[in-house]
Design a binder for these strands. Structure first.
Lengths: 143, 143
DNA sequence: GCGATTTACCTGTTCGAGCAAGTAATGGCA
DNA sequence: TGCCATTACTTGCTCGAACAGGTAAATCGC
């Protein structure tokens, strides 16, 4: 099963990269933007928490999104350590394109699966996610 | 479903990285070593084909494995363009450890799933893999 | 046999991802 | 109030992954 997951993960990411390329994003960036579009301005820490990502990676990803003009950075007024990230007006045009890409990705994955199979798949994936979270969380005691 | 795949993929890779760290490998390197252990010496191109990877990535990964002493490079006698990669004697000690890591990874994923569920999961993942291959292969015509 | 294409590999670059280490602001606690 | 751990973020490093571009060897077509 590990093999199968590896292969699907790689292909899934590869396809995402191909599709996102047309939109001018790199895989991973679209997840940040989707959070901002859905939830509005967020601190970097919150983005890290929401995406289960890494603070250092977030710093650099946000910097690139800022250079690309999709995001603005503004110091928090209540916490001088924190930076608030907000989507720019310009990014709103991107949103529809990203949603199209997302739909195409979803379609490529789900094509040929009955609705029932999809539901079951999601349920099992969620359970696997829980298991993995446990294993990652507690330093995998090996015993 | 795309969300679920992303999350499982990331966690799966993260757990693999944690486990492989104890063995001194980075995720991706173990796949190369497993091919070499299973099939014996291979040309770089063959490794690329077997793993669905990239020639440039393989060049660098092999170089690092060589520096780590797990792999040796030898020019092909029949094709002066090609390099043959072979596992070193030293790498054989690694093999058992990697197999343990792999088993632990498999266990973390499959724990709590009935055998029947696992079988079904693998079947569906294989179908998804096919779909993704089609989508990636034919430049995703968007229409 | 010779030229054009293909194949095998390498280097440079960009990006996400993670670890380590460092800075500065915050907040808790004695 | 003053100290100290925590939190938010940054920078430096190493890696896998992918693309672009480049070299040399092999192979195909004529």
């Amino acid at each position: 099963m590990t093999h199968a997951i590896f292969r699907v993960a790689r292909l899934h990411r590869l396809l995402a990269a191909q599709l996102l390329r047309r939109v001018g994003l790199h895989p991973g960036q679209e997840l940040v933007m989707m959070q901002l579009w859905d939830l509005g301005p967020q601190r970097q820490t919150d983005l890290v928490r929401l995406l289960g990502s890494d603070a250092a990676t977030m710093t650099r990803t946000v910097k690139r999104l800022e250079n690309a003009g999709f995001v603005r950075r503004r110091p928090s007024e209540t916490d001088k350590r924190a930076t608030i990230i907000e989507p720019t007006i310009a990014s709103l045009a991107l949103r529809k394109e990203v949603e199209l890409v997302w739909a195409e990705l979803e379609n490529s994955v789900a094509a040929g699966l009955a609705a029932e199979e999809q539901d079951n798949m999601i349920r099992v994936l969620d359970r696997i996610e829980d298991k993995l979270n446990q294993a990652v969380g507690r330093q995998t005691p090996l015993a």
